[in-house]
């Protein structure tokens, strides 16, 4: 009997030892988690953008500005311009004029504080053989003098759909369409499941696979909360029609950079706007119309 019970206690001791060792190993295995800095309670507990009071929002913005100062040693200013009433932004590109220079891609990269190492941008330009509209014939990695005589060029970015599939699929409502038609992402609410990237038919969404790298002197300090502020790691981002500029009456960076004047941007509700004239007088079309996404982004040919 004593032999048996001592065997049992020994067994219990070995089990206890095993459990302790296991727990210690588990803690050690998880240790890389605690090395990551930049995590704080305020960020962890932050509510959804639409639930923030003006005071909350102010506190969040001040925290983000302080964090940027600490990380880059640069003073940045984060604004949160809201949509103007009676405004719906629409974009159109004249494919007869676009020469594929990629200046828009570059301007987007700089304006929106994209990661320098991956040369990220919200715009991709397809080089297409003349005589087809089949994207399968397109090439995004062309590397020669442009324009090539037998080619035309089609820049693609977020189409700011009126029926955005990306918004429908988001499990946590971290992305939504604003009153002026811009689809935005709350970078502090996105959980990084990337369902929206699977749902988007236009390859408009990007994921922060790592913390974006930016040299301090290249940071654009004029930032918007829902647009070009430096994004956190692990969240999705997308083109926001430069809302920190356009809601203040300026034009998107990609339009200003365009050397050929192919890009037309404006408020479709304004009868005197250029964009309204283009939509009324040119034969415009949208990408993948059959999907029913109703893009606010149009393409047309001049000649």
């Amino acid at each position: 009997m004593t032999e048996k019970s001592s065997g049992l206690t020994r067994r219990r001791m070995v089990k206890g030892l095993g459990a302790t060792l296991g727990a210690a190993a588990f803690g050690a295995a998880l240790s890389p988690l605690f090395r990551s800095s930049g995590m704080n309670a305020a960020e962890l507990m932050q509510r959804h953008y639409k639930e923030l009071t003006p005071a909350d929002k102010q506190a969040v913005i001040e925290r983000l500005q302080a964090e940027a100062k600490e990380a880059f040693g640069v003073s940045i200013s984060i604004q949160d311009p809201r949509p103007t009433p009676q405004t719906k932004f629409v974009y159109a590109i004249n494919l007869s004029v676009c020469n594929g220079s990629g200046k828009c891609v570059e301007a987007c990269h700089k304006e929106n504080n994209h990661d320098r190492e991956t040369k990220q941008s919200y715009i991709r330009v397809l080089e297409m053989p003349k005589g087809t509209m089949d994207m399968e014939q397109g090439n995004t990695t062309y590397n020669h003098t442009v324009p090539s005589p037998d080619k035309f060029y089609m820049p693609v970015q977020c189409q700011q759909c009126d029926e955005p599939p990306c918004v429908d699929v988001c499990p946590v409502q971290a992305t939504w369409k604003e009153k002026d038609g811009i689809v935005v992402v709350d970078y502090n609410w996105c959980i990084g499941c990337r369902y929206c990237m699977a749902a988007c038919p236009y390859h408009a969404r990007r994921f922060n696979w790592k913390k974006p790298y930016l040299p301090a002197e290249e940071i654009n300090p004029n930032q918007g909360y829902l647009s070009n502020r430096v994004r956190p790691q692990g969240v999705v981002e997308k083109c926001h029609f430069c809302l920190h500029r356009t809601r203040e009456g300026r034009l998107p960076a990609c339009l200003e950079a365009c050397p050929t004047g192919a890009r037309v941007f404006g408020n479709i509700l304004d009868p005197k706007s250029n964009i309204r004239w283009v939509l009324e007088n040119k034969r415009v079309y949208v990408l993948k119309e059959e999907l029913g996404t109703k893009p606010s982004f149009f393409y047309f040919f001049d000649k």
């Binding site: 995590m39 962890l44 959804h48 429908d168 699929v169 988001c170 499990p171 946590v172 409502q173 971290a174 609410w189 996105c190 959980i191 990084g192 499941c193 990337r194 369902y195 994921f207 922060n208 956190p232 790691q233 692990g234 969240v235 999705v236």
Partner: peptide, 24 residues
């Protein structure tokens, strides 16, 4: 998940649960 620390955003009640729109 890119942000496992925000997992709670998916809990009905305390997060913002996009039901019934999102299949997820």
């Amino acid at each position: 998940l890119g942000r496992p620390d925000r997992f709670w955003h998916m809990f009905p009640g305390i997060g913002r649960f996009n039901f019934p729109m999102s299949m997820l």
